[in-house]
Amino acid sequence: MKARPLSVPGGIGLSLVALVWLAPYAWMVLTSLKSLPEIVAAPLSPFPSTLRLDAYRAAFQSMPLARYVWNTSVMAFGIAALQLLLALPAGYALAKLRFKGRGVAFGLVLATLLVPAQVRFVPTFGLFAELRLTNTFTALVLPFAVSALGTFLVRQALMSVPDALLEAARIDGAGEWTIVYRILPPLLVPTLISLFLFSFVFHWNDYFWPLVMTTDDRVRTLPLGVALLREQGTGVRWHIVMAGNVILSAPVLAIFALAQKRLLHAITASTS
């Protein structure tokens, strides 16, 4: 479709559209800087009378938020790293090695897309409960060690790497594992970055799995903590809840602002 130059009303219209999405974020930040009396007295006045960070202080005092941030980072980083470590050899085998059952193996990898966490959690919880592994990072990380999307994207990217290059590496004496972990990663940098960011953001955001697998502050994650901010105490202290919400969403929005193209690449591939 040919793009027509944007008229002034058109420009205003588009700006209003952006506002529908951006104003709620702004409101979240503004609320987190207010005091409770201010919020109740004038629900629609945007700016706090004085800038105060009391809500943030209160959020950190009422629960081990720093611990939650650390747990979430460890979990999301662990999952993303493990997914890359496993997707590299699997994608390599599926793209470049010839063996019996390759098609079946690829089908099995893709079939996992049909079994979301929401279907798996009951039996997996049973399994971990029997092994006394609920409330551990193992229960949070291991069930997500394989990413069908990751394996698929690595395989696709490797299709366009010429066999001659790998042959040359073999002639130079490189073993298969050397090829997988030394030769391939530099060739796949954009794909690997996309995957890592996508997976990190997805699991940073995840509420469902940590909710069902943990009850202990030592391993609980940030989304659980922030959701709990609303449930605790008498009366909802929205400024504190929004302070928690800023801490939860700011890193994701920052990653999105800095690496939008990379994230989009993985997200659009994840559905087609």
Binding site: L6, G11, L14, S15, V17, A18, W21, L22, P24, Y25, W27, M28, T31, V201, W204, N205, D206, Y207, P223, V226, A227, R230, W238, V241, M242, N245, L248, S249, V252, L253, I255, F256, A257, Q260, L263, L264, I267
Partner: peptide, 27 residues
Amino acid sequence: LAAFVRSSVFSAYVVSWVSVGLLWLWL
């Protein structure tokens, strides 16, 4: 402007469900 609007709208897809839920519960 169009690119900015695209990013603004899409950002909500990247933010967590918890964040969006709390945000709208408050609004």
